[in-house]
C-alpha cells in the first residue's frame, strides 16, 4: 500500500484525499490518488462532474525576457496569443499566460517526469551567465496546486465560484482564464479529455485545502465527487 507519507514530496491535499478514502500509487517522486475504491464508477462520475488532484504531476513554468523564444528553441509549441494553450506531442500542454510567460503541464497519462523535467534540466544545464536571455524557471509544482474538474456539469459548477463565463460555447477548448475562483487567484485551462468537458485548475498551493472544500461543496448539487487519476486517464481513452 502506497501512502503520501512514503515520499518527501506530498500533495497539498494529501490529507483530504486520504480522508476521502483514496487508494494511492506512486508517480515519480510522490504518491497520487489513483482511485477512491471504484475507478469504473469514477469514470462515469468524471463524465458528469469529477474533481481530481493532479498536484503530484510534473509541471513547470518559464517567465521573463527570452523565455518564449528559448522554449520554442527547445521544440515547445508556444501559442501565438496569450491565454491560449497548445498541446505538445507527448500530450503535455504549453499554456501561454502572458507575452513573456508560459506554464507547461505534464500529461496526466504520462508515467515519468516528461517534458517539464526535461525543460528544467535543459535550462539548468546551460552555462551561467547566459549569453542570450532565456527567461527564468518558476517553481510551478510548489507554487500551485493542480486540480482537474471534468464533466458535463463542470461549467455550471464553476458558475457558483467564478465570475468568468466558462460555458463550453463561450470558452473554447484550450482557452485560459486567469481569474479568481472562490476568491483565490487561479488559472483555468480548458482541456477536454476524450470528448468530456474538462478544466485544469491551478491555484495557490497554500489555499489548496480551502479550495478543495469549496469545490466539493459547490459540486454537491450536481452529485459531483472526487475521482482518481485512473478515472482521468479513462476519460482520455474516450
Amino acid at each position: 500500500m502506497t501512502a503520501p507519507g512514503d515520499f518527501p514530496r506530498r500533495s497539498f491535499v494529501a490529507r483530504k484525499l486520504d480522508e476521502a478514502g483514496a487508494g494511492f500509487g506512486s508517480l515519480g517522486d510522490a504518491a497520487v490518488a489513483l482511485d477512491f475504491g471504484d475507478s469504473a464508477a469514477e469514470a462515469e462520475t468524471a463524465r458528469r462532474l469529477g474533481l481530481a488532484d493532479l498536484s503530484p504531476l510534473p509541471r513547470t513554468g518559464f517567465k521573463g525576457a527570452g523565455a518564449v523564444e528559448w522554449l520554442a528553441g527547445q521544440g515547445v509549441e508556444v501559442p501565438a496569443e496569450s491565454n491560449r494553450a497548445a498541446r505538445q506531442s507527448g500530450g503535455e500542454l504549453a499554456a501561454r499566460l502572458a507575452p513573456g510567460e508560459v506554464l507547461v503541464l505534464g500529461a496526466p497519462e504520462a508515467e515519468a517526469d516528461g517534458l517539464p523535467a526535461a525543460l528544467e534540466a535543459a535550462w539548468a544545464a546551460e552555462p551561467l551567465p547566459p549569453g542570450t536571455p532565456r527567461g527564468f524557471p518558476l517553481p510551478r509544482r510548489d507554487s500551485h496546486a493542480w486540480f482537474l474538474v471534468s464533466g458535463s456539469e463542470a461549467a455550471a459548477m464553476f458558475a457558483k465560484l467564478c465570475g468568468v463565463d466558462l460555458r463550453p460555447d463561450k470558452f473554447p477548448n484550450l482557452s485560459i482564464a486567469q481569474t479568481s475562483v472562490a476568491r483565490v487567484s487561479a488559472i483555468v485551462v480548458r482541456d477536454d479529455r476524450g470528448g468530456t468537458l474538462a478544466y485544469h485548475l491551478l491555484t495557490d498551493s497554500a489555499s489548496a485545502e480551502y479550495l478543495w472544500d469549496c469545490l466539493l461543496d459547490a459540486m454537491v448539487e450536481f452529485e459531483g465527487r472526487p475521482v482518481g487519476l485512473a478515472a482521468v486517464r479513462a476519460l482520455g481513452d474516450g
Binding site: R10, F12, R15, K160, L161, A182, R183, V184, D204, A206, S207, A208, E209, Y210, L211, C214, D217, A218
Partner: peptide, 14 residues
C-alpha cells in the same frame, strides 16, 4: 450567501 473566506495553510499546518 455562500461566504468565501480563503485561508492559507503552510505545508506543516497539520
Amino acid at each position: 450567501g455562500r461566504g468565501f473566506e480563503p485561508e492559507r495553510l503552510t505545508a506543516m499546518h497539520h
